[in-house]
Amino acid sequence: NLFRIFGDLSHLASIGILLHTVRSTQSIDGISFKTQALYALVFMTRYLDLFTWHWVSLYNFLMKVFFLASSVYIVVLLQQFRTKNPIAYKEMVLQDTFKIHFLLLGSLVAGLCFHHRFTLLEILWSFSVWLESVAILPQLFMLSKSGRAQSLTVHYIFALGLYRFLYIFNWIWRYVSEARVDKIAVVAGIVQTAMYSDFFYIYYKKVIRGNAGNLP
């Protein structure tokens, strides 16, 4: 359905915006390394079914490979700034102070409590879904602390939030047309969209209405 396709495209766009801006401006100002590392972990633990020969479709396969590869690539790209631009890297590390072990531990507990079957793959899948729902927090925390945002981070977070927002409509669509619903994905998806709601409001005020407001 259209919600899902546009959701996936929005997700692709967010990665494209991030990669393009970092590569063309050679700047990592305002980007949270922790959030990017969490996303790499999310895809690594979710797409393990690539190795179980569980075939869904060519689209599904290519997207999984792309998300996996691009998330790892972004982490490597950010790490390169450690030697390429130590001052910018150090500044990022100093601002990127969110305690992610709470997110990791919380997602692990949620994965152990809510899963479809008690197998390693299913628990890791559930862990990845919960972790994705909170992985943006270090980035939002960094944004709120610095009080300024590069157009990069603003558009990046907007595209990422839009992706999750569209997925909610996708689930409503599927519930109606296919009579299928994945409770874990839906609850985590709503949590994730809620994380962005404050940001969306700021984005609306700042970007759409053109006011220079404060950040979330």
């Binding site: 899902r4 599904n60 994945d182 409770k183 994905a185």
Partner: peptide, 10 residues
């Protein structure tokens, strides 16, 4: 309605 995994999503 079927409540269960929808694993064809990303």
């Amino acid at each position: 309605h079927v409540i269960g995994p929808v694993k064809d999503e990303l």
